[in-house]
């Protein structure tokens, strides 16, 4: 019952907003090349599925690959960083620099240097996505309960045991939180990089479809592609939220059922 209400409220808001959008477009007589209504956009998604779907797959492939690399490397780097304060102090600022430099500014360089476009796009998406995993996991690995750390020391735990049985499980909720942010960012990174690359042909993703539709004034198709990107983002977030729930359901505060 409760769960159904969770979905009901946002669905209701969405429906009202879409209805208002459609009403405004019709009553004001706004032409589709300025702002298409949601019904026309839905029709376009169906009509152009043959073009849009392969592009969606291309974008998702780059996003997925970048996300996986971000997850693995983010975790691995976090473990390395937390082995010594020297390493963390020496390298962390560079991770921050990579993070704060706008991807649109570095993407042209990466595309210039890396000849194979999909790899260049993957690197861009990874650059955007990996930092939340890294910083969250570093935080998780270093915010272990001090008394538990003492307890492990007291019982003569080796460095490996303290890592494997204490620090790693303590960091898990933080790591999963990083993944949730990172999934959406990987998609954004992939789309932004595609925009910059502007590649056409068989390997083109949704961003290129948007550019292409813009040049040819096929505004409904532009919105249709935009809709697919948003839908992909929501799906990624939902998947990662589900993963986090399954992994932490038993013990972590963040995933307790209400009234539990």
């Amino acid at each position: 019952m409760r769960r159904r209400n969770h979905l009901l409220a946002p669905a209701l808001v969405g429906l009202v907003a879409l209805a208002a959008w459609e009403a405004v477009v019709r009553m004001e007589g706004i032409p589709p090349y300025i702002l298409p209504g949601p019904i026309l956009i839905a029709r376009t998604v169906v009509a152009d599925w043959g073009t849009l779907f392969p592009s969606l797959l291309v974008t998702l492939a780059i996003t997925g690959a970048a996300f996986l690399v971000a997850a693995v490397l983010g975790l691995a780097l976090a473990v390395v960083f937390t082995q010594s304060t020297f390493i963390e102090r020496a390298f962390f600022p560079y991770a921050v620099i990579l993070q704060v430099t706008p991807i649109v500014a570095i993407a042209p360089l990466i595309i210039l240097w890396v000849k194979w476009i999909p790899l260049a796009l993957l690197i861009c998406a990874w650059l955007v996505a990996f930092f939340p995993v890294l910083s969250n996991t570093v935080l998780g690995l270093t915010s272990t309960d001090k008394n538990l750390v003492d307890l492990f020391r007291l019982y003569g735990a080796t460095r490996w045991q303290a890592f494997r049985y204490l620090r790693l499980p303590s960091a898990l909720p933080y790591f999963l939180g990083g993944l949730k942010i990172s999934g959406g960012l990987a998609l954004i990174g992939a789309v932004v990089a595609e925009f910059v690359a502007g590649t056409g042909g068989a390997q083109s993703g949704l961003a290129f479809r948007i550019l292409e539709a813009g040049y040819t004034l096929q505004i409904p198709r532009m919105f249709a592609a935009l809709f697919l990107i948003s839908a992909a983002g929501v799906l990624i977030f939902a998947l990662l939220t589900g993963l986090s729930r399954v992994a932490l359901r038993r013990w972590h505060e963040s995933e307790l059922e209400p009234g539990d």
């Binding site: 309960d145 307890l151 499980p169 013990w251």
Partner: peptide, 28 residues
């Protein structure tokens, strides 16, 4: 050999009761 009981229970939230209790033996 000494046992230590902290002011707070200081349990591993991800581990079941028996695994929490087993910890010192597992480490040894």
């Amino acid at each position: 050999r000494l046992g230590f009981v902290f002011q707070e229970p200081t349990l591993m939230p991800w581990a079941r009761v028996e695994d929490n209790i087993r910890l010192p033996l597992m480490l040894a």
